[in-house]
């Protein structure tokens, strides 16, 4: 039998302890009084509204996030331009920000500033509206998607693109024929992670779009509101649905990452 050193035993032990704690934490979500309550909660008007709004805003925000993450990730990976380091730092900043702070920044920006007024003049009022949910989800998920897309393009041998250019294809044609097809696993991973981040965003949505019952109520807001009212059944149901979405996202991400 293979001998295990003290070091191997220690790090394996820590790994199992952490995993056990996480399993307990996740499992406690499922220690619900009755599964019948959960079934009823899922079909309640509030939950249906919240789930529908979460899926719609999450999908719209994910499409917007990926529309920006693809070109920005490619530019950060392939182009050399003045101020690139600064741009990268700024784009990554929301990852380190508390969501509440990001929400506050967006609230101030889209509130009564010139930028906010420009958006309002074209019908995009983000403050305490459903559009605000999309905006909050967009800014929360975007840095993650850009990071994944940049890493994906970094991983693609630039010589493949050089050769394509030398064979007569322009930079945009090369992007379409070579870079995009080779980045498909990264695009899949970034999309899934973005969607999961959008669905799960709480603090930014709460500050920018408000947590209004049956108005700007998405799943994390449902969880928060019902905890406040003391309605544990609804709160647990929201938690379980969010958990299911996250689990599916991580599963797809892992599958996509293997193919990267």
């Amino acid at each position: 039998m293979r001998k295990i050193s003290l070091f191997q035993g220690t790090i394996t032990g820590i790994t199992f302890c952490i995993t056990f704690l996480l399993v307990l934490a996740i499992g406690s979500l499922f220690m619900v009084p009755s599964w019948e309550d959960i079934r009823q909660n899922i079909w309640s008007p509030e939950m249906r509204f919240s789930l529908k709004l979460s899926l719609i805003t999450g999908l719209v925000a994910t499409v917007l996030v990926m529309s920006c993450a693809l070109p920005v990730g490619y530019a950060l990976s392939r182009l050399h331009f003045w101020g690139k380091g600064f741009v990268k730092t700024v784009i990554d900043m929301p990852i380190a920000f508390p969501e509440l702070v990001l929400g506050l920044c967006l609230l101030l920006l889209f509130g009564s500033t010139a930028v906010g007024n420009v958006f309002k003049s074209i019908g995009l009022n983000f403050v305490f509206t459903k559009k605000g949910i999309v905006a909050a989800q967009f800014f929360t998920a975007l840095p993650y998607a850009i990071r994944i897309m940049k890493s994906t393009f970094d991983y693609i041998n630039p010589r493949l693109e050089f050769v394509s250019r030398s064979l007569g294809y322009s930079m945009s044609e090369t992007f379409r024929n070579v870079s995009l097809p080779l980045a498909k696993n990264g695009i899949m991973a970034a999309t899934v992670i973005s969607f999961a981040r959008c669905i799960g965003t709480f603090g930014t949505v709460l500050i920018l779009a408000g947590g209004s019952y049956m108005k700007t109520e998405i799943l994390p807001i449902t969880l928060y509101l019902n905890i406040s009212y003391g309605n544990m059944g609804m709160a647990l149901t929201s938690g379980i649905v969010l958990m299911a979405v996250s689990f599916a996202a991580i599963f797809v991400f892992e599958k996509a990452e293997v193919g990267l």
Partner: peptide
């Protein structure tokens, strides 16, 4: 631009 030069490259 590289695509206009008609120069091939093999790595």
């Amino acid at each position: 631009l590289p695509e206009k030069r008609n120069i091939g490259i093999v790595y």
